[in-house]
Write a protein that binds this DNA or RNA. Structure first.
Length: 690
DNA sequence: GCAAGGTC
C-alpha cells in the first residue's frame, strides 16, 4: 500500500475519489479520516493533515521571562513540537503498513515543508521508506491524474528554506517581544509583540499617522462656472488653472468674467475599460472590503463557501486561470441559478471565450472562482454577498471590455481658458454586470467649435489640500502583498493580531499612541525589524537555500549575529525605551468624556496607590470626583464607542483565550449587564475553587 | 505569555 499525504482532509478525500477506479472506502483512525482505494497501479490510502503538524519552540527551561534574559534565547536550541497529536498518531499508524509515501501537499514552499515534516515523522517511527512528491495546482481530475502519473523527488532544500524562516521568525520574535515587554513592564495579557511581518506592517500605519499629524493644509481657490450652449444644455467648467494659491488673483479674474464665452477646442477620445483580472486572496479581500467586509470576515466567509463546494480554494496567489479549468463548463453550471442567467448567456454567446489574466502566475492553486450554483436561500446574507461578488467577478473576466467616451472642451471666457470634461460609456461590456464598479458619468453636451456659450452662474470654491488617507484593511492587505509581507493565508491574521494587541483600531485603521511609541523606539535602536527589507533579504536567502547555494544553519547563524548586535544596543538603552513606551501607553488611556453634566473633563485610567487598583477617574479631579471601577486583569483598550443603552464610554477587555469583550463602564447601566455579571460570577467561582 | 506559517 502506498500512503498519500495531503495538506488538508478535503484534498485527501478528493484525491482518493479522482484516483480510485472503483470507489473509495473511508475509515477513521484515531478519529482521523483515512481513504482507501485500489486501481491499476495498486492499493493506496490517503490522509489529510491540518497544515503544519509540528511547531518550532524553545525548550521548556526557557519559558520563564524573568529568569531567562532575552539574549539567552538567541543561541538557544529550537525543538519541534507536535501540535496535531491525533493526526500524528493516525499518520504513523497508517504509515506503519505502507511501503511507500507520496507527499501531495500544496505546491508551494510551506507545502514542501509540511510534507517534509510529515515524512520525517513517519521515518522517525518506522525507518527508511521510499518517498515521492506529487505536484499539482488544482484538484481537478486532469491535474491530479497527470501529477500522479509523473511523480517527483521531494525537494528537501526547499523545505530547509522554510525551516530557516521558522527559526529566524521564532528567534527574532521571541527575543524582541520579551525585551520590549520587559523593558516597559507590559507583561502577561499586556505584552508587546514584535515580529518580522507584524512590525513592518504596523510601521506602515504609524508612518502614515505621523505624515497626517505633520501635514500642513494649504488653502487654494478654484473658479467654477455653469454654462449653457446654444441649445440651452447646461454643463460645468473649471478655470484651467485648477488651483489658485492666491485668493486675490482668483478673485480678480472672477470679477471681470463676462457673461458670454466661446468653445475654442474640443477633444474626444475612446477609452477601453478592461474587464477585471481573476481573483486571488488579496484581490478578494480588497473587493469585499469595499462592501464593508473586514479581512477576517472575508476569509471566514470564503472558507465556508469553499467547504460547501461553492467556490474554489480561497487562499491563492494566482491570477491566471490554468487551462485545466473548463470555463464554458463552469459558466453552464452557474446558469443553474437564474439570477445570473442573462450575464452568463452573454458570456456563453461569445464565439471564443478569452479570459483576462493578472500579473501573478503561481503554482499553488487556481484563482478563486465559483465551482457550483448556490441559491440565495441556502446562504447567509454575508455568504451570498461574497458569493455573488465572486460569481460576477468570474464571469466578468470572460466578458468583453466596455468603452467610454471622454470629452474635453476648452472654452474661452473673456480671455480666460476654462475646461469642461465629460465622460460616458458608449459600449457596455462587462460593466453592465459588475455593480461594484461604477463609472462616473459626467454630462457634456455635443459642442461645436466656435459655438458660443452663456455663463449662467459663476462661483469661487474655497478649498484646502487634504492629508493622506489612513489605510483601510483592503488597502493595507494590498500594500503588504506589494511589499512581500506575510502570505495569502496570514495577512488577515496579522492585522487581527495587531488589533487585539491594542496597536491599531477603527476603520480606517489608526495606530494607538502605544504603537507609535513602540515603533519609534524600534526604529531608533532596532531598525531592521521595522522594515520590509528584512523579509526581502530573507526571501533572497531562502532562494539560496532552496537552490543549494546556501546552507540553512549558516543563514540562521548570520541572522542570530545581527540580532545580537541589535540586542546589545537595546540593552544599553533599556531604561529610556521603557519610559518612552510607558509614556505612550498613558496617552492611550482616555476612556471618554466625563458623564458629569457640570464637568468638561475626560475620564482617564488611573492607579490608586491606596487600594492598589486601577480605576477610571476624571481629569478634573479634585474638582470632579466621578470615578468608576474597572477590570484589573487583561489588556484594557479604550474605544471611541459609547454605550447604546446609557451613552457612557465603553472599554474593550482582551484576555488570553477569551473573546474581546466590550464593557460599558456605568455600573447602573440599564442593560447591565449579563456580561459583567458573568464576569463577576466567574471570578467568584474561581476564588471558591481555590 | 513570545513569531509566522499552515488549517477549521
Amino acid at each position: 500500500m502506498r500512503l498519500i499525504i495531503s495538506e488538508k482532509e478535503i484534498a485527501a478525500k478528493r484525491i482518493a475519489q479522482i484516483l480510485s477506479g472503483n470507489g473509495v472506502k473511508e475509515e477513521k483512525v484515531y478519529g482521523v479520516p483515512v481513504h482507501s482505494f485500489t486501481n491499476t497501479e495498486g492499493s493506496f490510502k490517503t490522509i489529510g493533515l491540518k497544515g503544519h503538524i509540528l511547531q518550532v519552540e524553545f525548550p521548556d527551561e526557557y519559558a520563564n521571562w524573568f529568569k531567562i534574559p532575552p539574549q539567552n534565547l538567541v543561541d538557544a536550541d529550537i525543538i519541534k513540537k507536535p501540535i496535531e497529536k491525533k493526526i500524528m498518531q493516525a499518520l504513523t499508524k497508517v504509515a506503519s503498513e505502507a511501503d511507500a509515501i507520496i507527499i501531495a501537499t500544496d505546491f508551494d514552499r510551506e507545502g514542501e515543508l509540511i510534507g517534509y515534516d510529515a515524512f520525517q515523522v513517519v521515518r522517525d517511527k518506522k525507518g527508511e521508506i521510499p518517498v515521492e512528491r506529487a505536484k499539482f495546482s488544482a484538484i481537478t481530475p486532469k491535474d491530479i491524474k497527470s501529477a500522479f502519473a509523473k511523480l517527483h523527488k521531494i525537494d528537501a532544500n526547499l523545505a530547509f528554506a522554510g525551516m530557516a524562516r521558522q527559526d529566524i521568525d521564532l528567534i527574532w520574535g521571541a527575543v524582541l517581544t520579551r525585551f520590549i515587554s520587559l523593558a516597559s513592564y507590559q507583561l502577561k495579557d499586556k505584552f508587546l509583540s514584535v515580529g518580522r511581518v507584524q512590525t513592518p506592517t504596523l510601521t506602515l500605519m504609524v508612518d502614515k499617522e505621523l505624515e497626517i499629524d505633520s501635514f500642513v493644509k494649504t488653502p487654494y481657490w478654484q473658479i467654477k462656472v455653469n454654462l449653457a450652449n446654444e441649445n440651452n444644455e447646461k454643463f460645468d467648467a473649471l478655470h484651467h488653472k485648477k488651483r489658485f494659491l492666491d485668493e486675490k488673483e482668483a478673485r480678480a479674474i472672477f470679477e471681470k468674467l463676462p457673461d458670454k464665452g466661446k468653445v475654442i477646442a474640443i477633444k474626444e477620445a475612446l477609452r477601453p475599460l478592461k474587464p477585471p483580472v481573476p481573483l486571488n486572496t488579496t484581490a478578494l479581500i480588497v473587493a469585499a472590503n469595499a462592501l464593508g467586509f473586514t479581512a477576517q470576515k472575508t476569509i471566514n466567509t470564503a472558507e465556508n463557501l469553499y467547504m460547501n463546494g461553492y467556490i474554489s480554494y480561497p487562499r491563492t496567489d494566482n491570477t491566471v486561470y490554468p487551462n485545466t479549468i473548463d470555463l464554458r463548463e463552469t459558466l453552464t453550471v452557474l446558469s443553474n441559478n437564474a439570477v445570473f442567467g442573462e450575464m452568463i448567456k452573454t458570456a456563453l454567446s461569445q464565439k471564443q471565450i478569452k479570459p483576462t489574466r493578472g500579473f501573478k502566475k503561481t503554482t499553488d492553486h487556481p484563482p478563486i472562482y465559483p465551482t457550483s450554483a448556490a441559491m440565495r436561500e441556502n446562504l447567509s446574507e454575508d455568504e451570498w454577498k461574497l458569493y455573488e461578488l465572486i460569481v460576477r467577478r468570474f464571469v466578468c473576466t470572460l466578458l468583453p471590455e466596455s468603452i467610454a467616451k471622454n470629452m474635453v472642451a476648452n472654452i474661452d471666457i473673456g480671455g480666460e481658458k476654462f475646461i469642461a470634461n465629460g465622460s460616458n460609456i458608449i459600449k457596455e461590456g462587462w460593466t453592465k454586470y459588475y455593480p461594484y464598479y461604477k463609472h462616473v458619468d459626467i454630462f457634456l453636451p455635443e459642442l461645436k467649435n466656435g459655438e458660443s456659450v452663456s455663463v449662467l452662474n459663476k462661483e469661487i470654491l474655497s478649498k484646502e489640500t487634504k492629508p493622506p488617507l489612513r489605510y483601510t484593511q483592503g488597502k493595507l492587505v494590498e500594500k503588504m502583498e506589494e511589499l512581500g509581507l506575510g502570505t495569502k493565508a496570514t495577512r488577515h491574521t496579522i492585522i487581527q493580531n495587531l488589533i487585539t494587541r491594542g496597536y491599531i483600531k477603527g476603520n480606517p485603521l489608526e495606530p494607538s499612541k502605544k504603537a507609535i511609541a513602540v515603533i519609534k523606539t524600534l526604529k531608533d535602536y532596532a531598525e531592521k525589524i521595522t522594515s520590509p527589507d528584512m523579509t526581502a533579504e530573507l526571501e533572497v536567502d531562502m532562494d539560496g537555500i532552496a537552490n543549494g547555494d546556501l546552507d540553512k544553519s549558516k543563514v540562521v547563524d548570520i541572522s542570530r549575529k545581527a540580532l545580537k548586535e541589535i540586542l546589545d544596543i537595546l540593552n544599553s538603552k533599556k531604561t529610556e525605551i521603557g519610559k518612552a513606551i510607558r509614556d505612550g501607553i498613558k496617552e492611550d488611556e482616555i476612556v471618554g468624556k466625563c458623564p458629569n453634566p457640570d464637568c468638561d473633563g475626560n475620564l482617564l485610567i488611573r492607579f490608586s496607590t491606596k487600594t492598589k487598583k486601577k480605576f477610571i477617574g476624571c481629569s478634573n479631579y479634585p474638582k470632579c470626583n466621578k470615578a468608576f471601577s474597572m477590570p484589573q486583569n487583561g489588556l484594557i483598550l479604550t474605544t471611541e464607542n459609547t454605550c447604546k443603552a446609557c451613552d457612557y464610554p465603553v472599554i474593550k477587555v482582551i484576555r488570553k483565550g477569551k473573546r474581546p469583550w466590550d464593557l460599558c463602564i456605568n455600573p447602573q447601566c440599564p442593560s447591565k449587564n449579563e456580561d459583567y455579571k458573568n464576569y463577576k460570577n466567574k471570578k467568584q467561582t474561581k476564588k471558591t475553587d481555590k
